[in-house]
Amino acid sequence: MATPNKIKVGVSIGDLNGIGSEIILKTFSDNRMLDFCTPVIFGSVKLLSHIKKELGLELGLQGIENASKAVSKKVNVVNVWKDNVTVQLGAEDPSLGKYAVRSLEAAVDALKSGGIDVLVTAPIHKSNVQSESFQFPGHTDYLAQALEGESLMLMVSSSLRVGLLTDHLAVKDVSAAITPDLIKKKVQLMKQALIQDFGLIKPKIAMLGINPHTGDNGVIGSEDDDVMRPTLDEIRQEGTLVFGPYAADSFFGSGNYENFDGILAAYHDQGLIPFKTLSFGRGVNFTAGLSRIRTSPDHGTAFDLAGKNEASFDSFKEAVFSAVKIYRKRTEYAEISANPLKTGRKRPVVKKKS
């Protein structure tokens, strides 16, 4: 495992024709990042060398056989494939999806075995990665199967944390998917993440309603009254500080979100539209609830920017910072939980007088 100051950050390369390689290389071309962590990219030295030359970037790449061979102060690259891959930056190419999957699977294997400490994923193209062996709508769903635990998609910035009850699900299926059991599970995942991964002792969680105006007393749907409210009442009785449901249309504009440590949205766009409006380019996607730590930038492959040397790497850099900070918080929490009475000092032995 890593020392406290040099955590191994594994990086999956994402879609080869997107901006993934560009934002990865730009992030680690700053030598200060190598004082902060040891990067291990899963991809191809040959490919990344070609792209860095095209971008005019000055950084050395250290080819290694596997993550355990990573060299401190170097940008390490595990060669996941030996194929001569032709990339056409900015173009959608379904034939390249298999390389994004290979990179991701190799990185996850290293994460599970302890070869890396955390994983940061560059964006994939959800359609291009589909195959008989990989049938997931995104990273979160794949990681929920590959790693132990229940997953919660949690978008994080310096002032906002938004989780999702349902993530990559068609809108027509959302209402039926939101059950008391799902609400209880996601609230617990959010609470646990806020405590162990962000260091909050008694977190306050807000829940957004399913329907407009939370149903207006049944006029616009009964799910909030029949499912959401009684379930939240039950959770509160068990001691969790969860509030709502709140009408989603005014919750963020009114600034009410500032009163809470975490917010749970009923479905994907209900949570991600306000999050990205308030935090785009600085936000991070964190997969909470799993046995290992994974983060990613808050944007997609951005084919329209690929190859133009114009892509911002701010969100990817924040994803690296967040992964390391969460790793440290979780390690600290595990140590405290394992022995809450440990003080680090031995009590003196006082001998009784005879």
Rank of each mutant, 00 (worst) to 15 (best):
M1H: 15
A2N: 15
I13W: 02
G20I: 04
G20S: 03
G20Q: 05
S21V: 01
F28K: 01
D30M: 01
N31W: 00
M33V: 01
M33L: 10
L34K: 08
C37G: 05
G43M: 07
G43L: 07
S49P: 00
K53F: 00
L55F: 05
L59Q: 03
K69T: 13
K69Q: 15
A70E: 08
S72N: 14
K73D: 09
V75D: 01
N79G: 09
V80A: 07
W81E: 06
K82V: 11
V85F: 06
V85P: 01
V87Y: 02
E92P: 00
D93Y: 03
D93R: 03
S95Q: 00
L96W: 02
A100F: 02
A100P: 01
V101I: 04
S103I: 03
V108N: 05
L111P: 05
G114H: 14
L119M: 12
D141E: 15
L147W: 09
E148T: 10
G149T: 10
L154Q: 05
L160T: 00
R161C: 07
G163I: 10
L165H: 06
L165K: 03
L165W: 05
D173F: 12
V174D: 06
V174K: 09
P180C: 07
P180W: 06
K184E: 15
Q188R: 15
Q188C: 09
L189W: 12
M190G: 05
K191P: 00
K191D: 15
L194H: 10
K202I: 07
I205G: 05
I205L: 10
L208G: 02
L208H: 01
I210Q: 10
P212T: 06
P212E: 08
G221K: 08
D226Q: 14
V227G: 02
R229N: 04
R229C: 05
P230S: 06
I235M: 11
E238A: 14
E238D: 15
E238I: 02
T240S: 11
L241W: 03
G244F: 03
D249I: 04
S254C: 00
E258T: 01
I263V: 12
L264K: 02
L264N: 01
Y267L: 08
D269T: 06
Q270R: 07
P274L: 08
K276M: 10
G283L: 07
G283I: 03
V284R: 10
F286C: 07
G289R: 09
S291P: 08
S296A: 14
G300H: 02
G300Y: 05
T301G: 01
F303C: 03
D304H: 12
D304G: 08
N309Q: 06
D314R: 09
F316E: 06
F316Y: 13
Y327S: 11
K329M: 15
R330Q: 15
R330K: 14
T331P: 02
A334W: 14
E335G: 12
E335S: 13
S337L: 14
A338D: 14
N339I: 06
P340L: 13
R347Y: 12
V350A: 14
V350S: 13
V350Y: 14
K352C: 08
